[in-house]
Write a protein that binds this DNA or RNA. Structure first.
Lengths: 115, 115
DNA sequence: TGACATATATAGGTAATCTATATATAATAT
DNA sequence: ATATTATATATAGATTACCTATATATGTCA
């Protein structure tokens, strides 16, 4: 099942913050982790993620540090801040309100009176 | 709870088609009905809805007819077509795939192994 | 008669994605 | 050895689905 990209809008930030609540990660890892956890429903694009990470860092929702991988390659790890944890809680709340409202609309219908 | 407008992206068409699956409606009525059914979580804007209705009609997902209200005012009613019902089924499917993927990501976490 | 609710419509702006492209290193295959 | 693929990060520009603002017109109520 391919997901219309516009459905993603607004929840990407929440998903990234959620990953970082679990543990520090570098960008490429987040893309893979998100695909894995969603059974490949999500394939977040690098061109979406990296600018988003820069914005979140500017807003002090996350912070970064460099670390050498075993391979010798340098990776840029991100860590969620206290402020970022607050933002995640808010976004999660919003998400729950939103989905339950949509589901409520989807349930309601012509036969409402007969329930 | 105010919903970030970007969360709406992608589900508005589905919600409009859902309303029309239940019964024929005119634009203004859809705005009110959507607010009511979602306990005011959604307040779809006229500037969003009317262009969307025009697009859906062009795509033959819906059709329209004019009818006189008791007030004497003329209203433009919309009706969902067979093609539109197909689109709704698709969108609903997509919605379910998407939300369950997001919820799966939100559940998974650092303590995954201990579950 | 003035304000507000009902009803539809369009122009222009914003924001969050995407694709395409660039750069660089490591691993693997030919 | 060399070409390709995977890893890793970055930015520019396009797309799209919303929004606000504005316009028009009629009905209702104070």
């Amino acid at each position: 099942m391919t997901i219309n990209k516009s459905l993603m809008t607004g929840s990407t930030t929440m998903l990234v913050l959620k990953l970082l609540e679990d543990k520090d990660m570098y960008g490429y890892q987040m893309i893979e982790e998100l695909a894995k956890r969603s059974d490949n429903t999500f394939s977040l694009k690098a061109g979406t993620l990296y600018p988003l990470l820069h914005t979140l860092e500017e807003q002090e929702m996350i912070s970064s540090y460099e670390e050498n991988a075993d391979s010798g390659r340098v990776r840029k790890y991100y860590s969620i801040t206290k402020k970022g944890k607050g933002m995640f809680a808010e976004k999660k709340n919003e998400w729950q309100t939103y989905t339950s409202a949509v589901n409520q609309v989807l349930q309601g219908g012509a036969n409402f009176e007969t329930i």
